[in-house]
Design a protein around this nucleic acid. Structure first.
Length: 480
RNA sequence: GGUCUCUUAGUAUAACGGUUAGUACAACGGGUUUUCAUCCCGUCAACGCGGGUUCGACUCCCGCAGAGAUCACCA
């Protein structure tokens, strides 16, 4: 396979959200599977929209997802600098070449005049094309003046790796701005120059650029460049409506999911498979599997709706997978910062034990906070939780008290307080009292946790320990 | 409005012109000694519409409708 050189080229205008991170994931996969390179390039040519700290946010997001870039900020590379704002001279040099070749011109027209042209066209209901208003004798270019492409209107045919064969007529070609009056290049020009200088083989970006592609093709031609492969990525749609997912739909940043206890494996897996599949029925993919299986020609060509429920399902799958394959310790290492505050007072060993019996209930790591409370703090006794329980409400309070006492006596007699001994004792208790599991176990479970749900009873008691378990049972028995 | 794109269950998707249209999430029901979850089993649910081509169309062609993108000195 020929080595692919791909790039992720965000503008530092804020955080990366799930709606746009896929245009980092796919280029990464394509680069890695051919043993090529992913370049991170920061497109900061719009000074007005620049947000302080956004670059760090972007880097942070990519690192968390495990999308390491081979060239770019921090790591450097042979094509430095990787911030477009630091590459102004390069764009001006290329633009000047175009002027010299008669394929671009300095445009002295004031913006008000342009607006006037535009209005005129709108009134006449004809499309506004600047090339129809091209100044006749453009002056020699000097800084402070925009440079426009002198386009040659004609039809274009090209192939988009996702959308297929494309065709447009001359009416979409125009004299697009190459260099703005502030001296910065437009995206339209800068990305073409940079992609050429950086030997980019695959231009992978959102479909919104599809309509501008003919103008880019014109630019490749004028510049004498070979076209890279063009790959349009369909949008990710908001949960409701048919609009692409954006910040105004409350699209959360990728790192927000990290803070909410989503694993990067799950995020990567979910996003990669939103609008792409390898034709098999596999659902869970590791990063390496994605690198191996990914193929551009199986990217869906329509937008895909973002479904957080499925993401969370997948996260649960990953939590269990990590536990099963890498062990409790490995999963524990991922849970730092997600425990209830009081957990700090307990040993790591104890927390690992708690995790081991609770992990298959987690959808996100932050569920630990609400699901493990009673392992670290004494629950508040709420007799109603017992008396009104659907299995216990038919029993009288005296009966409940008695049952508790019998249970306490039995459990106290256990020699080795471990899950097997506990299970044996609980089973014996069942036959001795003649109660149904629903009654006996509910009573003990609630008394010991006062939680809406908890792991298997013998496991809960085993982890809680003899002392605590019996103390809690006694406390409840006294309160009735 | 011009140009371009898209259209399989609620959602994500599978299907090289011939299948009872498959899978997953969700929903619903059931099973595993309590609960919640895992796991297992099951139920519901889809080819946007209309024409062609063909022995046969989700699949090819043409219209229509709906949805989206874009028409910036933003990217």
């Amino acid at each position: 396979m020929k080595k692919a050189i791909t790039r992720f080229a965000p503008s530092p205008t804020g955080y990366i959200h799930i709606g746009n991170v896929r245009s980092a994931i796919y280029p990464y996969l394509v680069a890695k599977q051919s043993n090529g390179k992913l370049i991170l390039r920061i497109e900061d040519t719009d000074r007005g929209r620049y947000v302080e700290g956004a670059t760090e946010l972007i880097e942070d997001t990519l690192k968390w997802l495990g999308l390491d870039w081979d060239e770019g900020p921090i790591v450097g590379g042979p094509n430095e600098p990787y911030f477009q704002s630091e590459r102004k001279d390069i764009y001006v040099k290329w633009a000047k070449k175009l002027i010299d070749a008669g394929r671009a011109y300095a445009d002295p027209t004031p913006e008000e005049k342009i607006d006037e042209y535009r209005r005129e066209c709108n009134e006449k209901k004809i499309p506004f094309l600047y090339r129809n208003f091209r100044p006749e004798n453009p002056p020699k270019w000097e800084p402070g003046m925009p440079i426009r492409l002198k386009t040659i209107p004609k039809s274009y045919d090209w192939h988009d790796e996702v959308m297929g064969d494309m065709h447009t007529g001359p009416e979409v070609l125009d004299d697009i701005i190459l260099i703005k009056k502030d001296g910065f290049p437009t995206y339209n020009f800068a990305h073409i120059v940079d992609d050429a200088e950086m030997d980019i083989t695959h231009v992978m970006r959102g479909v919104e650029y599809l309509s501008s592609t003919p103008n880019y093709l014109a630019l490749y031609e004028a510049l004498g460049l070979d076209r890279p492969l063009l790959v349009s990525l369909p949008h990710i749609l908001a949960p409701t409506g048919n609009k692409k997912l954006g910040k105004r739909d409350g699209a959360k940043s990728v790192t927000e999911y990290r803070d909410d206890g989503v694993l990067p494996e799950a995020m990567l897996n979910y996003l990669a498979c939103l609008g792409w599949n390898d034709g098999t029925e596999q659902e869970i993919y590791t990063k390496d599997e994605l690198i191996k299986c990914f193929s551009i020609d199986r990217i869906q060509n329509s937008g895909a709706r973002y479904d957080e429920t499925k993401l969370l399902w997948m996260n649960g799958q990953w939590i269990r997978r990590i536990f099963d394959e890498q062990g409790a310790r490995a999963l524990y290492d991922r849970t730092i910062g997600f425990w209830p505050e009081e957990a700090e007072n307990y040993s790591e060993d104890y927390r690992v034990k708690v995790l081991s019996i609770i992990y298959d209930r987690l959808k996100t790591l932050s569920d630990l906070k609400t699901m493990t409370n009673y392992f670290f703090t004494e629950p508040e006794i709420d007799i109603n939780a017992i008396v009104e329980n659907k299995f216990l409400k038919k029993m009288s309070e005296a009966e409940i008290e008695n049952l508790l006492k019998v249970a306490i006596k039995k459990l106290s007699s256990i020699k080795e307080w471990n899950e097997d001994e506990l299970q044996t004792a609980l089973n014996e208790l069942l036959t001795e009292t003649g109660k149904k599991p629903a009654e006996l176990f509910s009573l003990i479970r609630i008394s010991v946790s006062f939680a809406p749900f908890s792991p298997a009873l013998n496991l809960t008691l085993a982890v809680l320990g003899r002392e605590k378990s019996l103390a809690r049972l006694n406390a409840v028995a006294r309160s009735i």
